[in-house]
Design a binder for these strands. Structure first.
Lengths: 216, 216
DNA sequence: TAAAAAATTTAGACTAATCTAAAAAAATAA
DNA sequence: TTATTTTTTTAGATTAGTCTAAATTTTTTA
C-alpha cells in the first residue's frame, strides 16, 4: 500500500499530465501546495517504486502501475462524491474536500460494493466520468463554452473548476449539469458570452465560459 | 484537529478505562501493538493538549474533552459498520478493519447525515450501542453467558471479542445477535456451557461464554 | 522491609514528509 | 552565444511517530 502523500502525488501527476503526458516539478508543487524541493524528494521515491518515469530536470510521467493507482483514487473520489450528493443530500459545491479525504480509504471491495449500491453511476456530481472497477471510463467529448460559436446549443455536462465559489456562482445563474443552453452572443471586446438557459439570458465572463463544459 | 495516531490513542484509552476509569502504559501499548516507550511519548503530547490526565507511572484517564473526541470516533466507527452491513451487505465479521479506517474521516456533518440516512440506528452489527450526535448512548445491561445460571434464557445482544474468527465461529454455531437462547447446563469441570438455540443444543467453551453477551 | 521482578520513563536514533537556502541546470533574452 | 532568469535539485534542518536499550520507579515477594 502507498502512503497518503504518495497517493496525492500520483493523483496530481495524473491530472497534470492528462493533456501532454508530462508534469513538471513546479506544477506538482503548486497543485499540492508544497515546495519544489519537497516534490523532487517525493519524485525520487515514486521513481524508486516504479510508479513514475523520472529524469531529473525533465518532468515526470506515470508508469502503467502508477496510472492504475491514480485512476483507482479518482474512481474512489468520484464515487464518494456521488454518494454524498445522491444519498446524503449534500450540494455539489460541498463534496470536494470530503471526497479528498474519503478517496484514501483503501479497500477496493468496499468501493466496488458502493458502486453497485448506487447502481454503477457513470458521472459524478460535477459531470466527471467515473472509472469502472477495471479503471475504464469514457473521456467525454466536451467543449468549454468559450470555444463554441454563436447560435450553437448544448447540454452543460462538466466544469473545469471544482471550487465551491465557482459552483455556487453557477447555481445562482442556474447553469447546472444537465441544463440545455444556447450561445446567443459573444462579445468581441472581452470574450464574454451571452447564453440562453430556459427562458432567461445570462451573461458570463470569458473565465466562466472557459470553465463551463458542454456537450454539443 | 487531531492526528490519526492521537485519535487511536484516545479511543484505546477510552475502551481500556471503561471499567476502572484508568488505563496503564502497557495496556495501551498492547492494544495498539506498539511499545511502552512510544506510548509514554504520546501520553505527554495528549496531556499537553489537555486530552488526558497523566501522572508519570500512574496511568491515565481521559479529560472531558478527550472523552468527547473518543466517543465521536466510536460513533463514527459504529455508524460506518452499520452502513457496511446494512447498505453494502458486508458480513459482521468483515467490517471491523474497514471501520477502523473510516472512523477517521473527520466531518461531523457527514456522519450526522449518514446517521439520518440510515434512520438513526441504536446498535451496530455487533450489538454495541451507537452514540447519538451529542455523544449519548445507553450503556446496555448485558451479561456474559458465563455469568448466567442454568435454565435462564435471554437474547444474544453483544460480543466482547470483535475478531473475525470469533464472529465466524458464532455464525457457524448460529449464535448471532438477536437469537434467543437458554442456558441448559454448565459443566463444573471446565466451566463450559450448554445452550439451547432454536431446536439445537450447542456446547461452548468458557472462553466463548465469556465473550458472548446476552440480555436477560 | 530489603531484594527481585515488573512496569514505566528517558536517551538517543530512525523514517517519512516537509521546509529554507544555496547550488546547478535549462530556458530565455540581449 | 553569452548573460540573465527561471526551474530544478541538493544540502541540511525540523516534526511526528516510532524504535531499542538503558535507567528509574513501582510493585511484588520472600
Amino acid at each position: 500500500m502507498n502512503t497518503l502523500a504518495e497517493e496525492n502525488y500520483l493523483k496530481s501527476i495524473y491530472h497534470l499530465s492528462v493533456n501532454d503526458g508530462n508534469a513538471s516539478t513546479n506544477q506538482i508543487a503548486s497543485s499540492l501546495n508544497t515546495k519544489a524541493s519537497s516534490v523532487t524528494d517525493m519524485l525520487k521515491k515514486l521513481a524508486d517504486k516504479a510508479l513514475i518515469n523520472y529524469t531529473p530536470y525533465q518532468g515526470v510521467s506515470l508508469t502503467p502501475s502508477g496510472e492504475k493507482i491514480a485512476i483507482s483514487i479518482i474512481r474512489k473520489h468520484r464515487l464518494w462524491e456521488y454518494f454524498l450528493v445522491e444519498k446524503l443530500n449534500f450540494k455539489w459545491d460541498q463534496v470536494h474536500d470530503l471526497a479528498e479525504e474519503m478517496e484514501h480509504i483503501s479497500s477496493e471491495e468496499l468501493i466496488d460494493r458502493l458502486d453497485k449500491f448506487m447502481g454503477y453511476p457513470k458521472h459524478d456530481p460535477h459531470g466527471d466520468p467515473i472509472p469502472d472497477c477495471n479503471g475504464r471510463f469514457n473521456t467525454h467529448e466536451l467543449k468549454p463554452v468559450s470555444a463554441v460559436t454563436v447560435n450553437q446549443s448544448g447540454i452543460i455536462s462538466g466544469v473545469r473548476d471544482h471550487s465551491s465559489s465557482f459552483l455556487q456562482y453557477l447555481d445562482k445563474k442556474q447553469l447546472t449539469i444537465g441544463c440545455k443552453i444556447m450561445i446567443t452572443d459573444i462579445i468581441e471586446y472581452d470574450h464574454s458570452v451571452v447564453v440562453q438557459t430556459g427562458n432567461k439570458e445570462v451573461h458570463i465572463s470569458r473565465e466562466v465560459a472557459n470553465n463551463l463544459l458542454i456537450a454539443l
